[in-house]
Simulated assay, not measured.
Amino acid sequence: MEKSILRKKILKQRQELSELKWQTKSNLICDRLISSPLFLQSNTIFAYFSFRKEVDLNPLFSLNKQWAFPRCVNKSLVWHLWQPGDSLIKDKYGIPTPLESAPIVEALSADLILIPTVACDREKYRLGYGGGFYDRLLSSSQCCGITTIGVVFDFAYLDRLPRDSWDIKLDFVCTETKFLNP
């Protein structure tokens, strides 16, 4: 199946989740992440604010970690420090982001990157929205060696995704029922 067709199908399935089911599934993923040694040992975590019923990571943000969130600048992601109570704005895509004036965090300082996905497969490849922001980030020398975890709902964890030469494999995938290692 073509990426664009698969993306539409899974996004539709995700949008059809009731608020209760979406939040319950998201909370299960957060619980699984919190119990992971990778998460527990990380100090600086790059994350994202949920958009269009992506996995909601909000329960994690009150934990004693240094959090950074992306802003889309041209074709790249710029990471800004954020803590609960800091202001957010919506970017041109409608995604909540830290203010431009928030301190910038270099990718090299991250211990862990929680990656939003539309879908992931058993080989730990991800399907995103098609903009290439995370593929460019993950292929950069700045991110070499930083652990990545794709977060995705079970129904979007598939046997095999269509892929292109530029797609980057993740280190781990976390769903509401599984934490998949290499």
Score class of each variant (00 low, 15 high):
S50M: 15
Y93E: 09
T44I: 06
L88N: 03
E100K: 15
A102C: 10
W79L: 08
L60Q: 12
S35D: 02
V105S: 04
E16S: 12
W22F: 07
F49W: 14
Y93P: 05
R14Q: 09
V73M: 02
K90S: 10
Q15L: 14
P37V: 01
N64E: 09
F39K: 06
A68N: 05
L38Y: 10
W22L: 03
S101W: 00
H80Y: 00
A47S: 03
D31A: 14
N43Y: 11
L57I: 09
Q41N: 07
F39M: 01
L57S: 13
I104G: 00
K12I: 14
I34A: 04
N27G: 05
P37R: 00
I29G: 03
S36M: 01
F39Y: 01
A47R: 06
D86Y: 08
Q15H: 14
I29E: 05
K12Y: 14
L60N: 11
L20Y: 02
K53L: 07
E100W: 04
T44D: 07
N27T: 08
L63I: 11
D56A: 08
L28P: 02
V105D: 01
Q83F: 08
S101A: 15
G94S: 09
S26Y: 00
Q83L: 10
C30L: 01
G94N: 10
W79I: 08
F46C: 03
A47Y: 03
N58M: 15
I104P: 05
L88G: 02
A68V: 02
G94E: 11
A47D: 02
E19F: 02
E16D: 13
C72W: 10
L38R: 06
F51Q: 15
P59Y: 11
I45H: 03
G94F: 07
E54A: 09
K21V: 15
V73I: 08
I10F: 07
A102D: 11
K53E: 09
Y93D: 13
P37W: 04
G94P: 11
F39V: 00
S42H: 06
Q15N: 13
D91P: 02
I29L: 00
T97D: 05
W67T: 03
S76C: 12
L28N: 10
L99G: 12
S35F: 04
L38C: 00
D56S: 03
P98K: 11
F61P: 04
L28V: 05
D86A: 12
L63Y: 09
E106W: 14
S36D: 01
D31P: 02
Q83W: 08
Q83S: 11
I95M: 12
E54T: 14
L88M: 01
L28H: 09
G85Y: 02
K25P: 06
R32E: 08
K53G: 02
N27E: 10
K9F: 05
I29T: 03
L20F: 06
Q41H: 11
L20E: 13
V105M: 07
G85T: 07
S62P: 08
C72K: 05
L17H: 04
I34C: 07
Q83Y: 10
A102Q: 06
K53I: 03
V78D: 02
L60V: 13
I89V: 13
R32W: 04
S35C: 05
I104Y: 01
E19K: 03
S35L: 05
F61W: 09
T24E: 13
A47V: 00
A68G: 01
T97C: 15
K75I: 12
P70I: 08
S18H: 08
I89W: 11
L81D: 13
P59K: 14
P70M: 08
P96S: 15
C30F: 05
E16F: 10
Y93F: 11
T97Q: 15
